[in-house]
């Protein structure tokens, strides 16, 4: 889309500035980091997709427990392979930036936590979420009994309409009451 591989045009830059929460420096840095991920052949092509494996080599995402989910959520790929274009990448950074609004952040957090992409956080999603946060191996995982109790607690405190799942508005309600979220839902390049 007019993005030359080596540098960004002025128009593109101002458009990116308008559409994201990033500053010029951040966009340029993002561009630099993104082009570093490209192979030599890809550098000449405009609008290349970088596969998820290479995206995850970024140190900012490397050890994040949600790294795959993040890529899938922000990917606009038709094949659902989690590959990112530069614009997707900007989108990601914008949502995780300092100045993004709570609504944007909670929206994307919800989608990251919604492992089966069905629009609600149900028991399965919550279980996966907890496992993601406590570690996947058997010795770190919570016991089924604990997990059940935990999910009950979670639903009890957030499922306002008592339908057994947490939907986006309920999630946003929860988020708005945990002030640490905004400062911790942040990835800086």
């Amino acid at each position: 889309m007019g993005t030359t591989a080596s540098q960004l045009g002025k128009d593109m830059l101002s458009e990116y500035q308008e559409l994201t929460f990033l500053t010029k420096q951040e966009i340029l840095l993002a561009h630099k980091r993104f082009t570093e991920l490209l192979t030599r052949d890809e550098k000449d092509l405009a609008n290349t997709r970088v596969p998820i494996e290479r995206i995850l080599t970024l140190p900012e995402l490397k050890s994040n427990p949600f790294r795959k989910r993040i890529c899938h959520v922000f990917s606009t790929s038709e094949y659902k392979d989690g590959s990112l274009t530069f614009e997707d990448f900007l989108d990601l950074l914008s949502a995780f930036s300092d100045s993004a609004t709570l609504e944007i952040k909670s929206h994307y957090a919800f989608r990251i936590f919604d492992f089966d992409d069905d629009g609600t956080l149900d028991c399965g999603d919550l279980e996966k979420l907890v496992n993601c946060l406590t570690g996947e191996t058997d010795d770190t995982r919570l016991t089924p009994e604990e997990m059940r109790q935990l999910i009950n607690n979670i639903l009890e405190e957030s499922d306002i309409d008592k339908d057994g799942t947490v939907n986006l508005s309920e999630f946003q309600h929860v988020i708005s009451r945990s002030p640490d979220f905004v400062s911790s839902f942040k990835i800086v390049l």
Binding site: P59, N64, I154, S158, S184
Partner: peptide, 16 residues
Amino acid sequence: SAWQLLCSWDFNITNE
């Protein structure tokens, strides 16, 4: 509350 723990995951942390 459990949610606050879950939501407070620090995406900043990059160290393995």
